[in-house]
């Protein structure tokens, strides 16, 4: 907001001293009082306003208090944001970002814990990004709002308190970064030092990154070698970069926070089957949340959403093939 006077922020309860339900916008309304707008509880219009502002050359960023509320803006996303760039036969840019916290693990219950991105994946002219703590989310947000496309920017709630892990080597974990066609990072992690091929490739995104650090550490102790690929861009899918990472690895595990049916992991798996036909040891295993509501009861919620234990047991299942 310092660099670009056209950057406008709007959302519910984002003004100081509250600074947003997750405090992401704290301080901004004090620093930029003319460019930070607290809105009524009107998600469809919040999204609609960002579209209108972007059409007129501004670079608006809207906060949705919970990712679950994005359904209220579905018409704006599908029939407005994603259409204006494509349906007028011109080269219009529509830089706007809808930021929102997603995911479970905090006991918020069925309508405040979901990861609903699958509803909008694959929509032409609409980007969906999910940073992890292995990239700098602020830099990616700036990149998105400085770009051309309407973008949904997913912030996993449990990543907020995490420390960024941007170093090349951290214990046994090595981190390298590639960049996709839109210049968004595709992070590749491995838990082994040399150039051998991993036993298993894991493909995941967003908040799953929080679980991967401990999982990769533990698996290194058991000499199970993992290469994990974490693209920031979920849609469009940087499938060439994912395929390059998984190439030559015989076993593949795809993890997402949402329930896996009809989801991101299905698309990734289909594309990887196409790329690696006949080269895999067994089927690609997909895991995610149970296909149920996300319960409020914390112990039950832990059984429903993806956990370190579930990832480990999936790894052992794949290793047994």
């Amino acid at each position: 907001m310092e660099k670009d006077p056209n950057a406008i922020l709007l959302g519910e309860d984002i003004l100081d001293p509250y600074g947003g339900a997750f405090k992401v916008t704290k301080g901004l309304s004090t620093k930029f009082p003319q460019r930070v707008f607290t809105t009524p509880i009107s998600e469809a219009s919040i999204a609609g306003l960002t579209v209108g502002m972007a059409l007129r050359g501004m670079r608006p960023i809207a906060e949705f208090m919970f990712g679950d509320f994005i359904t209220l803006a579905a018409d704006q996303i599908v029939n407005h944001a994603a259409k204006y760039m494509g349906m007028y036969g011109d080269q219009m840019k529509l830089p706007m970002v809808l930021r929102t916290p997603v995911g479970g693990g905090r006991g918020y219950g069925p309508t405040h814990s979901q990861s609903l991105e699958k509803m909008f994946l694959g929509l032409p002219m609409f980007h969906i990004l999910a940073p992890s703590h292995f990239v700098h989310p602020g830099e990616i947000l700036v990149q998105a709002i400085s770009g051309s496309y309407p973008t949904l920017f997913l912030e996993n709630k449990l990543l907020y308190p995490e420390v960024l892990k941007l170093e090349q080597h951290s214990g046994v974990i090595n981190r390298t970064v590639h960049f996709d066609e839109h210049n968004y990072p595709v992070v590749v992690l491995s838990n082994f030092p040399d150039k051998r091929k991993a036993d298993i490739a894991i493909v995941a995104y967003g908040g799953i990154s929080r679980l991967l650090g401990p999982v990769l550490n533990q698996l290194a102790q058991e000499e199970i070698w993992i290469t994990a690929c974490l693209p920031v861009s979920l849609s469009p899918l940087p499938i060439k970069h994912i395929q390059a990472t998984t190439e030559g690895i015989k076993k593949i595990l795809v993890i997402e926070e949402a329930s896996p049916a009809f989801g991101w992991g299905s698309e990734v798996s289909a594309a990887l089957y196409d790329a690696h036909a006949g080269q895999l040891d067994g089927p690609i295993l997909r895991i995610g949340a149970a296909n149920s509501v996300i319960p409020a009861s914390k112990p039950l919620e832990e059984k429903v959403i993806v956990s370190e234990e579930k990832i480990l047991s999936a790894v052992f299942e794949v290793m047994a093939w």
């Binding site: 609609g48 306003l49 502002m53 018409d75």
Partner: peptide
Amino acid sequence: GGIVPNAVGAALAE
């Protein structure tokens, strides 16, 4: 209906 908040956003931008 969807164009209505777009118009309001455009008015805000201007």
